[in-house]
Design a protein around this nucleic acid. Structure first.
Lengths: 239, 239
DNA sequence: TTAATGATGCCAAAAACTGGCACCATAAAT
DNA sequence: ATTTATGGTGCCAGTTTTTGGCATCATTAA
């Protein structure tokens, strides 16, 4: 058995039994006393808090608060969590958000990639706010989540995006833009993009976008997105 | 360099360069061609999707969607993420929430502990809704996050909780209750608990609780919490 | 004092990893 | 058809890491 798996088994046994002794653990995981001791030391190095007491009746005790998980998440999943947490922080009403931030920071650090940092920069542009009371939610279509996979590579790799867009008047056009940010004003998502042919920024309601496609090999540089909190009052005019 | 770290380096290089060849990677990570090939095989076993093409101009290509992280999170951190995601789902306005759910499911599964499932049962009672427009947020105190660590073991281990409570009239009493659920109505958190001395459920505003303390060795069983969505209209009467 | 327990250092055996080699398959270029 | 650049596999000896046994010490309850 690989060291890593054996150490996981040790943690499991310690959790289940509350307290145990080196010899018992050694028998349970099929390793020698010496090896278990080394594994315990390794776990302590990794941050597990394991108390020990010598003498008859002594043994090991794992502090449950120090138990950790080793989930493997994809970049997309990290992105999803990121949005969730960023949104809650923007809403500003939940405690634990500090902990959630810390957790995400860990996840990002463990990710063998620095692309998530790029995503984070886009997230900085997000604003999540309560819906104005006069807006009729049922009348506002939501974007189709099935379209999202097409957007991700565009943001990750700064690729131009081509899609069909049906504007407020129902007129359908084909656009070819450089995605700059996502703007979230629940329950609507907007794509903020630079339109090279018009030399200007445009907002697109995500639910009015269809057939999005990344244009391969078209990396562009990021532009200064011309809004911040002041976007708030603009809300009613977006569509 | 340890195999694990070398493999991480490989993934980093592949992500950065888009595509590469075995020989180039071998030089970059300071290992032999054979070893890199073995590492690639190991990565594939772990779920990384690495395409390869033979012949001149060929090479390796890592599908970015398959890149994974190996963060180690504590139970408390998982709880924090859980709340974040559960809240967003309750708000019902964000896409990606399916992905976030999947990510959390993975995290929970990887956690060598089943305590998080217990936490999840509490979370099922959460309701997160937009604040009624007539409520003046600035007048509503928020709970002190510093108090939270005292609550966590109470929920995790079903322990009785003792605390001081200052009610709406400013009268301070000492309570001794069995915590049953957290009720979130932004920006306020409520503790829903069974009060054995009164043989009834009580709601406590978290920001009016002080000096919370777990009562060790006092495990209790869960009671049927007598509310669901119908709690919504009750809102104005809670305090 | 004794016995049970955690903890550390040392060393040889065992296991895993590594790098070199030969060799194969494929596909583009000549 | 040949050459060349590439990924991929099997084998084996050398190297490195891990393991298990041993001796030994410290601590504490009986």
């Amino acid at each position: 058995m690989k060291p890593r798996h054996r150490q996981d088994a040790l943690v499991r046994n310690l959790r289940r039994q509350g307290t145990s002794t080196i010899s018992r653990l050694a028998e349970e995981v099929g390793a020698s006393r010496r090896t278990v001791l080394r594994d315990i030391a390794a776990l302590r190095d990794e941050g597990f808090v394991i108390h020990s007491e010598t003498g008859p009746g002594g043994g090991l005790f794992l502090d449950p608060r120090s138990v950790q998980t080793t989930a493997r998440l994809s970049v997309a999943e990290v992105f999803a969590l990121l949005i969730s947490v960023a949104s809650m922080r923007a809403a500003g009403t939940l405690p634990f958000s500090g902990l959630a931030d810390a957790a995400l920071a860990k996840i990002e650090k463990a990710l063998p990639s620095d692309k998530v940092q790029d995503l984070r920069r886009f997230l900085d542009c997000l604003y999540v706010g309560p819906l104005a009371p006069e807006v009729d939610i049922t009348n506002l279509g939501k974007m189709d989540p099935a379209l999202l996979p097409a957007f991700e590579p565009a943001f990750l790799n700064r690729l131009r995006l081509r899609f069909h867009y049906r504007d407020a008047k129902g007129v359908e056009t084909t656009r070819h833009v450089e995605p700059q940010a996502m703007l979230i004003l629940p329950p609507l998502w907007y794509l903020v993009a630079w339109d090279p042919s018009r030399q200007d920024f445009r907002h697109f309601r995500m639910d009015r976008i269809s057939a999005p496609e990344c244009v391969e090999g078209s990396a562009f540089r990021r532009r200064q997105v011309p809004f911040d909190d002041s976007v708030r009052p603009v809300r009613q005019t977006l569509d």
